[in-house]
Amino acid sequence: MTQDTAAVAELTRRLVSIPSHADEGAAGDAVEEWLRAETDAAVRRDDHGNVLARRGEGAASLALVGHHDVVDPDPSQVVSGTPDDPDPEYRIEAREGRLHGRGTADMKGSLAAALLAFRDADPAGELVFASFAGEERGGVGARAAIDDGFAPDYAVVGEGTTGYSGPDTTDVAVAHRGRRGSTLTAHGTAAHASEPDAGENAVYRACDAVDVVRDLPAPETTVLGHQVRGSVAVTGIEGGSGWNVIPEDCSVTVDERTVPGERVPLDRVETVDGVEWTVDQDLPPMACDDADFADAALAAADAAQTGTPDHVVKPHATDAGWLAAAGTTCVVAGAAEPGEAHTATESVSLDVLERCRRLYRRVAERWPAT
């Protein structure tokens, strides 16, 4: 293990050891303390738990972005206490060149790589670091920071892009899908099931609305020559109060994977009598709007590894969606591989973490272009 790999491994282990599924405050403290001790940057902690730092000067700014909260650990990832405890001891193990534990891949490993790159880079312009709280709760930290004026010109968001174009290759995502979760609520009139015509069956109305959803086309678009295709699917239905009662209410859940600039016209379900549509969550998609920046990030990724990376599309929503919607030009690049995040076997390659450190530093030293 090289000295640089050992450094990113040590910092990752330190961050992962701090529970941050129920309360990410202590993890934010650790990030803030490290920045104050290791850099000369202007560091601040906002009222939402976000950790922000700035160094360097220039007409344009580049941000290295991550988050320090995690999802609830699996029981196997806890040494003492239970996953329901706010402060259990997390299990962290190093095996065969990988670090195993909750948050290693999503995304404290890439966060550690970004911290080291932020410290060590000779930035080409103003360099910003941001570690957001509440990413796993719908991007609440990023949204709050944006509302408070956080607006870098460019950003590299460190969510996982390793293994997309090929094994052991860290790619650069120029787009990702969003997610809109909706509920269709059908209202009817209750009656005794022996006299069904005396009521209005809410389940039948809900089924009519499901037929509308079934016929809606999936959205699609193109970003920098790459196709981004969304989807829409009914994921649940619930209604009725008894086997002998005509149901007066029925609800249907719909999962829609959105693409930049397009939405499925789900409002069409409201053409069915008694049906209303409500949006429960809308995580925005992301599209990079600057081909030069996308190419610069790809060149940095190429220089950081022996494999040949590519521009890719990421299927999952990230904080890049909120930033892009607010006007920041974004790409996504990080260590996590498909199938690692949020699992009982979550792990990250230490060599890939060091690769990401090199990638982030190279972007910071060559962008914004002058």
Results as ranks from 00 to 15, higher is better:
A59G: 15
E354R: 10
R355G: 11
D40R: 11
L224Q: 15
G307D: 12
R362S: 15
R91S: 14
V157M: 06
A42Q: 13
L359H: 14
D168F: 01
D4W: 00
V259R: 05
A60N: 11
T189D: 06
T39L: 09
V203Q: 05
A193Q: 04
L15R: 08
R45V: 07
T278Y: 01
A206W: 01
R257W: 10
F132C: 12
R44H: 14
A144N: 04
T306E: 15
G25N: 12
G240D: 03
G139T: 08
A206F: 00
P260E: 06
C330A: 06
L116P: 13
E256H: 12
E337W: 02
G321F: 06
E238M: 03
P368K: 12
N244K: 03
A291Y: 02
L283D: 14
G163W: 06
G139L: 05
A151T: 10
A121T: 11
D120N: 12
G339I: 00
S349I: 04
A37C: 03
G242Y: 06
V348I: 13
A37P: 05
V174A: 07
G166Y: 00
R229M: 04
A114M: 13
E337Y: 03
G49I: 02
D29F: 03
Y90E: 12
W367C: 09
L115T: 12
G261R: 06
T343Q: 14
V71D: 05
I246T: 15
V65W: 06
D47Q: 12
V234C: 11
I18C: 07
G181F: 12
D46K: 03
T329F: 04
L11Q: 07
T82M: 01
D23Q: 06
A193T: 04
E32I: 01
G274I: 00
G109Q: 07
A114F: 10
Q227K: 14
R143H: 07
P196D: 09
R55F: 09
A6C: 05
E276T: 15
G242V: 03
A324S: 15
S80T: 15
A124K: 08
A301D: 10
A336D: 10
I237V: 14
T169P: 09
G230S: 07
